[in-house]
Write a protein that binds this DNA or RNA. Structure first.
Lengths: 250, 250
DNA sequence: ATCGAAGGATTGTTGAACAATCCGTAGATT
DNA sequence: AATCTACGGATTGTTCAACAATCCTTCGAT
């Protein structure tokens, strides 16, 4: 409470606080905006930004599964009130990224063996259905782009980028369906997966192997051989699940 | 605003407040619970209970799409603080049941034509995949039970129960997959659908017609003709979407 | 070594406060 | 009349301070 900038975990250093607090700033209501159309892009609330910040830290592996998130700590580090942090927690909990243990605190979600299988079940359902439905040329091109992105990452031996590219690939497959809800669901599932990716990185060997898988799946998609693409994808998911299960879980 | 029990919307009348407020109750820390195993079922927080209450009112059609949810009103009606209501809102917003308009308030979500299509897209992906994967005899029995539930409702001309039974039927289909996440996703999607069911009830004629559809789908499932069950289900979903689109939508 | 009480830390929840923003309305302008 | 605009009330967004309940750790007693 003495010096605000003393963050112990790796926060940007800057505070997230707005200028709307309880007793600062002399009022100076200025320009009217005229009768223009309603603002289309609203600035997100502080709670949303806290949630986003945490989501980022989760994705980056700065916050590992099982880690405890103390309200007061985050509140101080980000320069926001505890209540606001709580609102952000409610968001993240709804996304399964954190877990609430009543009266004990919130913790970064950690996936057990059952969860890994569950996540892959969701992916099998959604991704395979999506690819079998095909998509517009633009969407297919996006899948192709993700394949190339992976290649490029492999060329410079960037593990991190390789993982991202793979996620983009699978995200692009779901995006074929042009469904806002499915995209959201997939984004959440991928976020969950990133969580345990950071616990133990799968060996580079395996990462390379699915570059070829992706290429083949993409080729089938481009050729309009949707059923075959679906089967290839399904086989990949099964293999991937097995790999992840043996690396993590018991 | 004068008398607390004067709820204008149909709340239960009872308050949701706990006994943990700011300045009541003389401390009397009593019995120790021994070194028993950690409590397995924790009582949900007030925020969760507010969210549940609102979810219920949403499902019952007490709160129609587009309706505004004022923080202070709900806060008073339920006897909880505004901050707690806000936490509940964060939960519901993450579930898409309400929408936040920054600085304007939260409103009951209302699905436009695009949303209806989107919801059905999700259902087609998940339900069809689920039924094509089959399930344990118990799970199949649950599907059968939902069919009979619908029949019973039709026998006594209970529209409301008929709708519920149909939702149970489709929920049971997804449950075949034994996936916690898919069940949650499906539950959320069904909750979204309940939202606009209350806007305009589809004619009873149509409701009856899908009793037979369900029966046929269930029979195919029981017979292990999974592909056929999938096709029947898909056809049903397409028809249902078209029906809903013409009734609602533009 | 085990048990249980004492203490400190943290969560859960409240109430009050206030800036910013929105919205309806009434008065001023063209 | 049709606006534009300034004013004011209502509501949201956010903070702060307070405190009961609960959890966790430590420490002393049996």
């Amino acid at each position: 409470m003495t010096s605000p900038e003393a963050g112990t975990r790796g926060i940007s250093g800057q505070t997230l606080a707005t200028g709307r607090t309880g007793a600062k700033r002399a009022g100076a209501a200025g320009g009217t905006l005229g009768t223009a159309a309603r603002l289309r892009v609203a600035i997100p609330s502080v709670a949303d930004r806290v949630a986003t910040e945490l989501r980022l830290q989760l994705a980056e592996g700065l916050l590992l599964p099982g880690a405890r998130l103390t309200e007061s700590t985050i509140s101080e580090e980000l320069g926001v009130s505890r209540n606001t942090v709580r609102e952000a927690f409610a968001e993240l909990a709804a996304e399964r990224l954190v877990v609430r243990h009543p009266n004990r605190g919130v913790f970064v979600a950690s996936l057990g063996p059952g969860d890994i299988h569950d996540v892959y079940t969701v992916r099998r359902f959604i991704e395979v259905s999506a690819i079998r439905g095909g998509g517009s040329p633009e969407r297919v091109a996006a899948v192709r782009a993700a394949v190339e992105e992976g290649r490029a990452a492999a060329a410079v031996d960037d593990e991190e980028a390789l993982g991202s590219a793979n996620q983009h690939f699978h995200g692009a497959i779901v995006a074929l369906a042009e469904s806002r809800r499915l995209n959201t669901i997939m984004a959440q599932v991928l976020a969950e997966m990133r969580l345990f990716f950071h616990k133990a990185t799968v060996d580079a060997h395996f990462y390379r192997s699915y570059l070829d898988d992706n290429e083949e799946i993409c080729k089938a998609l481009e050729a309009g051989e949707l059923d075959r693409a679906g089967e290839l994808l399904l086989a990949y998911l099964d293999r991937s699940e097995e790999k992840q299960s043996t690396v993590h879980g018991d």
